[in-house]
């Protein structure tokens, strides 16, 4: 186990280093100047600005500086908003995104499992067909389209929910649903197929023969094993919710980190783009690592030391 975690940590660090390096050099070759504006700056001011942001140093020194800064968790100032640092943006926006993400993950997992289990128990009956039809729809409708439709019909036309902004619990419902729909559909399909597989096992028959109630069999015997694949999906789920939140926050005008990220893309605010990309990458890689470790603990049948699973 320790060897496996060590190995995974090493890969994670290499991936991260690749991301940081790629981000740095991509931003170096990016066209345009971070201070480009309508007015041309006098050369003295330009030189001062460059010196202030360390842009007058040779590239390798800028690169090592940047690496050091990332290691010490300092993502530097925003080029566009002079008084704000990327760290400020992250500490402002991330809590909001975090709450939204958690809500979405909760919705996706809870309803996904529920629908999947119902579909598997009622295989080839109308319940199965209905839930699976919803699931196929959920997978086919991208989150941002789901979000705009929800906003248009439920908020603008019917007025059941607030249209946008981030104030009360009611404000969080539509964005969370929009964010959760795709992953929920995926989890439902995953749960259904693994439930069907588990239900065909002999020990389920034994449990039935013992006279256990179908509720006990479903929850205690079938679901415990059937939900293992769902655990592996939690890593990609986090990734999906995270990247999905960029557009969702844009549509609903939620002041989260995704919103800042999209704004910084539009403004070509390079340091913010760099910082947030690296920040998100760290979160994602750590989340995926944690999920993989958790999976190894939950399912003792998986041998972690052997490297990749599923081989």
């Amino acid at each position: 186990m320790a060897k496996y975690i060590g190995k995974r940590l090493l890969y994670m660090l290499i991936s991260l280093w690749l991301i940081v390096t790629a981000t740095f050099f991509l931003m170096k070759i990016a066209p345009g100047n971070p201070f480009a504006s309508e007015k041309k700056l006098p050369p003295e001011i330009q030189a001062n600005l460059n010196a202030h942001f360390g842009l007058d140093k040779p590239w390798y020194q800028q690169y090592t500086d940047y690496l050091m800064n990332v290691v010490t968790w300092d993502f530097g100032p925003s080029f566009k908003y002079k008084s704000q640092t990327v760290n400020d943006l992250i500490s402002d926006g991330f809590p909001v995104s975090f709450i939204l993400g958690l809500e979405a993950i909760f919705l996706a997992v809870a309803f996904g499992i529920l629908f999947g289990v119902i579909a598997a128990l009622k295989q080839n009956k109308w319940q199965d067909y209905t839930t699976m039809a919803i699931a196929v729809l959920g997978i086919s409708v991208p989150s941002f389209i789901m979000a705009t439709f929800l906003q248009y019909f439920l908020a603008i036309k019917l007025g059941v929910f607030p249209v946008a902004r981030w104030e009360s619990f009611m404000h969080t419902i539509l964005p969370a649903i929009a964010l959760a729909a795709g992953p929920m559909a995926y989890i439902a399909r995953l749960t259904r197929s693994s439930m069907l597989e588990v239900l065909a096992n002999d020990y389920i028959k034994t449990a039935k023969a013992k006279g256990l109630s179908s509720g006990v069999i479903t929850v205690k015997h079938a679901m415990r094993n059937a939900l293992l694949p769902v655990v592996t999906y939690l890593g990609p789920l986090t990734a999906g919710v995270l990247t999905g939140s960029f557009v969702i926050e844009k549509i609903f005008g939620i002041p989260g980190l995704g919103f800042h990220f999209v704004t910084s893309i539009t403004n070509r605010d390079y340091t913010v783009i760099m910082g947030v990309t690296v920040f998100y990458s760290i979160i994602l890689l750590v989340a995926i690592l944690l999920v993989d470790i958790a999976y190894g603990i939950i399912d003792p049948r998986i041998k972690l030391a052997g490297g990749k699973k599923g081989e």
Partner: peptide, 10 residues
Amino acid sequence: DILSGIPYLL
């Protein structure tokens, strides 16, 4: 494996 650690959309 290392390359796949890079978040796709980012």
